[in-house]
Design a protein around this nucleic acid. Structure first.
Lengths: 207, 207
DNA sequence: GTGGATAGATTGACTGGTCAGTCAATGCGT
DNA sequence: ACGCATTGACTGACCAGTCAATCTATCCAC
C-alpha cells in the first residue's frame, strides 16, 4: 500500500501549484513574492526551487496543464458530427463551467497569461493561437456547409467568439457582471445566440 | 509671442509622455525602468519626478488622456439620431482608426490597463465600466425600438461588442492577424456585421 | 531486529542585483 | 538675484534564486 493508497505521502509539488493558483489570483503574478506561495503552501521557501527552476515556471506549468485540457476538448468537439451551434455551445459551456468550478485558476490563466500578451502571453502565443485556429476551422466548415456567411473571415469570427467569452469571464472576475448558476447558463446561450444569430431581430433572407 | 508660437520652449512633460508610450509599448510597464523613459525622452532621470509623482502616474496620465477622448466620442455618437448599426460602426471606426494612427498608444492602453485588470485595470475600473455602460445604453435603445432582440442582456451585448473589437486589436498588436488599411476597413465592417447580423446566413423571421 | 549508509526531501538564512524615488547642486531665463 | 527647470549620483528597500545544513525514509549487512 505504498503507491496510491489514501493518505499517501503529501504531494508537495501539487500543494505548491495549488497554493500558487490562490496567491496569483489574489495578488497577481508580479505583485506576489515567492515566499507568499511557499507560506500559502505551508512549505519552506527553498522547496519551491526543489520542484521548479523558477517562479515563472510555476505559472507556465499551471497554464500548460489547463490549456492542454481545453485544446483537447475543442479537438474532440470539432470531430463530432453536430451542428455548428452545438459545437460552439459546447466550447462556451466548457470554458464557463471551468470558471464555475475553479474561478481562481481561470482568473490566473486569463489575467496572467491569455491577456498578458506582453509577458507570458508571448511565451505561450503558439498555444493560444492553436485555440483560435481550431475554432476558425469549425467556422470554415460551417461556411462550406452554407450555414455561416462566407464573407466574414473565419479567423476573424473565431477571435470574435473567443473574445466575447473571455470578455464575459473578465466581467465576472472583476465584478462587472452578476454571477451565479443562472447567469452562467444564460451566458452560454447568449454568447452563442449573439455570435451565430446576431443581435438584430430575424429578417427575411436576401432575395 | 510667448505663449503658443511655433518652436516655443520644448515641452519636456509632453516629451516624457510620448517617450513613455514608446517604451511601455516596446518593453511593457513592469519590465521597463524609469531610466529607460528618461533616456528615450532625452531628459535627465530626475526630471520625470519633477513632472510626475511616480512611474505609475505617467501611465495613469496617458490612459486618462486617451480614454477620455473615447468616452466623449461614444457620448456624442449615442446622442445622434442614426441607426444602431451606424452608431456601433462609428465606435468601431474610432477605435480602429485610433490604432491605425497610434498603434503604440493603443497597445499600451489595452495591454497595460484595459486587459491588466489586476494592476491598473483595477484603478481605472470605473472609467472602463463607463464605456461598457454607454454602449449598453445604445443597445437598450435599439431593443426598445424593436431593432435588437429583447432577450439578450444589453450589458452582455455591450461586452461582446467591445470584447470583439479589443480581441481584434490584440490580434494585430501581437501579429496574429494581418494588418493594413484594407484589413482595418474590413474589420470595421465585419465586427458590426457579426455582432448585429450574426454569423449565420439570413433566415426567415420566426412565425 | 539493529546499526548505519545513502539518497532524496526539506529548511531558511544569506547574497547579489535591481530599481523607484530622493535631493543637493547646477543651469538658465527674466 | 530670484525662482523654476534640470541634472544624475546616491540610498534604501525589495526579492529571486542559492546553498550548506538538517531531516526522514528506505534498504541492506549481519
Amino acid at each position: 500500500m505504498s503507491s496510491t493508497g489514501a493518505k499517501a505521502v503529501p504531494d508537495r509539488r501539487r500543494a505548491i501549484l495549488d497554493a500558487a493558483v490562490r496567491v496569483f489570483a489574489r495578488q497577481g503574478f508580479h505583485a506576489c513574492r515567492v515566499s507568499d506561495i511557499a507560506d500559502e503552501a505551508g512549505v519552506a521557501y527553498g522547496l519551491l526551487y526543489h520542484y521548479f527552476p523558477s517562479k515563472e515556471e510555476v505559472l507556465n506549468t499551471l497554464f500548460l496543464e489547463r490549456w492542454g485540457v481545453m485544446l483537447q476538448m475543442i479537438r474532440e468537439v470539432d470531430a463530432e458530427q453536430i451542428p455548428v451551434r452545438e459545437k460552439l455551445g459546447a466550447i462556451a459551456s466548457f470554458i464557463i463551467d471551468s470558471y464555475r468550478h475553479d474561478p481562481d485558476m481561470m482568473k490566473v490563466i486569463i489575467v496572467e497569461v491569455t491577456r498578458a500578451a506582453n509577458s507570458f502571453g508571448q511565451t505561450h502565443l503558439g498555444q493560444i493561437r492553436e485555440a483560435y485556429r481550431m475554432i476558425g476551422t469549425i467556422v470554415t466548415k460551417a461556411q462550406r456547409e452554407g450555414v455561416f456567411k462566407p464573407d466574414i473571415d473565419a479567423e476573424f469570427a473565431a477571435m470574435t467568439f473567443y473574445g466575447a467569452i473571455e470578455q464575459v469571464l473578465t466581467g465576472w472576475i472583476f465584478g462587472l457582471l452578476p454571477q451565479g448558476d443562472e447567469a452562467f447558463e444564460r451566458a452560454k446561450q447568449m454568447v452563442v445566440e449573439t455570435v451565430c444569430g446576431g443581435l438584430e431581430v430575424a429578417r427575411a433572407p436576401a432575395a
